[in-house]
Structures are given as structure tokens and as C-alpha cells.
């Protein structure tokens, strides 16, 4: 892994050349005008061409947004995991606040995922609708793929996390109900004929409340898993499968030149068509002329 930097030597050479040529920079092209705009006058008097291509296409901003969202998800995931762990541990405190927090976080993450997905879709739409050059379109496709795979990876880890939490919750519930069952059996033996005491009734009621709350939680989580799964499926169409030809760099490069070639061919064809239509227009014009002359001929002798 030896490397050698030639940058310094290059810069040295470049500087000597720059001095020799008395900095041809300022007058060379529009790009430099862009660079040195601070020195330039406000109103361009010369016939500089203002290069619009310096500006990135509009959808690049969306890419940044998606990147931010992904970062946010990455930050939230560990928080959620630690909350999950804390919640699974048995304890006697009031847990409603914690549960609320978990719910909120889960919602937020799910929402972020949805948002990312719709943004990726928007990139696709924007880059298609604009009359973008061929290569720019290729690039936007590559960007979508890359974002989709990133999101895919995140969502799969999120789903796994949710699933394991769900499993643990369920496990605790069944353990809990077993515990309740045994207890009620005991009491049944003791107070067979006496019916439930008020304290027992209260206990049953409270355990029912706990159970129904668990149920609700589980449904919540199952729902979020479902939404994420949907997103997952949609993204899958964008992601490149590993080990396929599509994942080869040389194949993609070849495709690019094939695309360019076919585009050139189509342009040629278009030009041909245009030529043809021009011919046709002239013929039509001549025909019209002849027709007009005939009409004149018909009406003139009178």
C-alpha cells in the first residue's frame, strides 16, 4: 500500500507557469468570472457567457434533506433501543411516561422513514420531468439507488429491533398471565363458595387493564412494523442486488457508452425526420401555390 504524492511538485510547476503567462486566469472564461466575481463590476460589460451549469440541479437539495433525515434516524435508533431495554426490565414504578416516550419515538422514526421514501420518489420525478442531460439522469438514478440502500439497511435494523422488543413484550405477557392464572387458582380453592372478595375483584380488574394496555402496545408496534415493511418493499425495486451484473462497475460504464451511442443514433434519426418534414413542408407549399395559381387561372380569364 505504498503511495506517493506528487501534488507539491505539480503545484510548483503550476505556479511557475502561472507566473510566466501573467495569470491568464482572469480573462479566460466564464468560470473564472464566476470565481472572481468580487472584483468584477456589477454590470457585465463584456460578452461573458454566464454558465448556468455551475449550479447543481434542483433535486440535489432533496438529496441533502434525505441525508439529514437518515442521520436523524441513526441518532434516534440507539435512544429507542436503550428505552426498550429499560422498559423490558421488571420494576414497580409508574411506566406510563416511559411508554409514552417509546410510542412517540417509534412514531417519529416511522414518520421519518415514510418521509425519506416519499422524498426519494420526488427525486425520481424531478429528474425525469426536467429536460436533464443523459448523464445527469444516470446520476440521479445512482443517487436514488444509493439512498435507497442506505434507507433499506436502516429500516431492516429498525425492524429487527422492533421485532425483538415485541417478542420480549409478548413473552412477558404470557409469563404474567401464567402468574395471574396460578394466583386465581389459589384463591379459587380457598374461597370456593364465598365468591370474589372486593380486593380480588379489584386485582382482576387492574390486571385486565394492564393486559389490555399491553395488547394495545403490541398492536401499535405491529402496525409500525407493517408500515416499515411496506416502505421496504417499495425501496427494494431500487436497490441493486449484490453479485449481479448490475453491480459491476465495468458493466455500468459500458451501459453508459451504449446509452450515449443510442442517444446519438436517435438524435440522427430526429434530424432526419426533421429534414423530411422540411421537405414535406416545401412540397405542401408548392402544392398550395399551384392550387392558388390554378384558382387564379380559373378566375382571371373572365
Amino acid at each position: 500500500m505504498a503511495t506517493r504524492s506528487r501534488t507539491l511538485l505539480f503545484l510548483k510547476y503550476r505556479n511557475t507557469f502561472a507566473r510566466n503567462h501573467s495569470r491568464p486566469l482572469a480573462t479566460s472564461s466564464g468560470y473564472d468570472a464566476y470565481n472572481t466575481s468580487e472584483q468584477a463590476g456589477l454590470i457585465e460589460s463584456s460578452d461573458h457567457v454566464i454558465e448556468l451549469t455551475v449550479l447543481p440541479p434542483k433535486w440535489i437539495d432533496i438529496v441533502d434533506e434525505v441525508d439529514d433525515d437518515i442521520d436523524q434516524i441513526k441518532n434516534l435508533l440507539p435512544t429507542l433501543e436503550s428505552l426498550h431495554k429499560k422498559h423490558i426490565l421488571p420494576g414497580f414504578d409508574d411506566r406510563t411516561k416511559e411508554e409514552k416516550e417509546i410510542e412517540r419515538l417509534t412514531d417519529e422514526i416511522t414518520h421519518l422513514f415514510q418521509q425519506c421514501q416519499s422524498k426519494i420518489k420526488r427525486i425520481a420525478n424531478e429528474s425525469l420531468s426536467s429536460i436533464a442531460p443523459n448523464q445527469e439522469r444516470a446520476m440521479s438514478k445512482n443517487i436514488q439507488t444509493s439512498l435507497a440502500s442506505k434507507l433499506q439497511e436502516l429500516s431492516s435494523s429498525f425492524r429487527k429491533q422492533q421485532a425483538s422488543y415485541l417478542k420480549k413484550l409478548k413473552g412477558r405477557e404470557s409469563k404474567g398471565s401464567k402468574f395471574f392464572l396460578i394466583e386465581s387458582n389459589d384463591s379459587n380453592e380457598d374461597d370456593l363458595e364465598l365468591g370474589f372478595t372486593s380486593s380480588q375483584l379489584a386485582r382482576v380488574e387492574s390486571s385486565e387493564a394492564v393486559i389490555s394496555q399491553r395488547e394495545r402496545e403490541i398492536i401499535e408496534i405491529a402496525k409500525s412494523i407493517h408500515t416499515i415493511a411496506e416502505i421496504f418493499r417499495e425501496l427494494q425495486s431500487l436497490v441493486i442486488d449484490q453479485g449481479t451484473l448490475l453491480d459491476r462497475i465495468d458493466y455500468n460504464v459500458e451501459q453508459m457508452s451504449v446509452n450515449v451511442k443510442s442517444a446519438v443514433r436517435e438524435l440522427d434519426k430526429g434530424a432526419q425526420y426533421q429534414k423530411k418534414t422540411r421537405n414535406r413542408k416545401i412540397i405542401l407549399l408548392l402544392l398550395l401555390l399551384i392550387f392558388g395559381l390554378i384558382i387564379i387561372l380559373i378566375f382571371k380569364p373572365r
Partner: peptide
């Protein structure tokens, strides 16, 4: 290709391709 994409290398092309767009 996907490992390049994950490093924000969004376009790969040949230097001998004359029809590259200005970006």
C-alpha cells in the same frame, strides 16, 4: 457499483468518452 455509491460516487465514466456532460 453499490460500494462506490455508498461513498457518494454517483457517476462512473470513461475518460475517453467524449460525450460527457458539464457538471
Amino acid at each position: 457499483q453499490s460500494s462506490l455509491l455508498s461513498h457518494e460516487t454517483y457517476l462512473v465514466d470513461r475518460i475517453d468518452n467524449k460525450n460527457r456532460d458539464r457538471m
